[in-house]
Computed example of a mutant assay.
Amino acid sequence: MFLGTHSPRLDEKGRIILPAKFREELSSGLVLTKGQENCIYVFSAREFEKVLDQMQNAPLANMAARDYIRIFLSGASDEVPDKQGRVTIPATLRAYAGLEKELVVIGAGSRAEIWDAHAWNEYLAAKETAFSATDEMGIPGIS
Score class of each variant (00 low, 15 high):
M1A: 10
F2W: 07
G4Y: 07
G4I: 07
T5A: 10
R9N: 15
E12K: 15
G14E: 11
G14V: 11
R15T: 05
I16C: 00
I16E: 01
I17P: 01
L18H: 06
P19D: 02
R23L: 02
E24V: 08
E24Q: 13
E24H: 05
S28C: 01
L30W: 02
V31G: 02
V31H: 05
V31W: 01
L32Q: 00
T33G: 02
T33I: 04
T33N: 04
T33F: 00
G35Y: 00
Q36K: 05
C39G: 00
C39M: 04
I40M: 00
V42L: 03
F43L: 09
S44N: 09
S44H: 03
A45W: 00
A45D: 03
L52N: 06
D53N: 09
D53F: 02
Q54R: 15
Q54K: 14
M55T: 03
Q56R: 15
N62C: 09
A64R: 14
A65R: 03
D67F: 11
D67Y: 13
D67R: 15
D67K: 15
Y68K: 00
Y68L: 08
I71S: 14
I71H: 12
F72I: 06
G75C: 06
A76I: 05
K83Q: 13
K83V: 10
Q84E: 12
Q84K: 11
Q84N: 09
G85E: 07
G85W: 10
V87T: 11
P90N: 09
A91M: 12
T92L: 12
L93G: 10
L93N: 06
R94E: 03
A97Q: 02
G98R: 06
L99T: 08
L99K: 08
K101T: 14
E102D: 15
E102I: 07
E102Q: 11
V104W: 03
I106H: 09
A108S: 15
A108M: 13
E113L: 08
I114T: 12
D116W: 01
H118C: 04
A119V: 06
L124I: 03
L124F: 12
E128T: 15
T129I: 08
A130W: 01
A130G: 06
F131M: 12
A133F: 01
T134A: 13
D135Y: 01
E136Q: 13
M137G: 10
G138S: 11
I139H: 04
I142L: 14
S143T: 13
S143G: 11
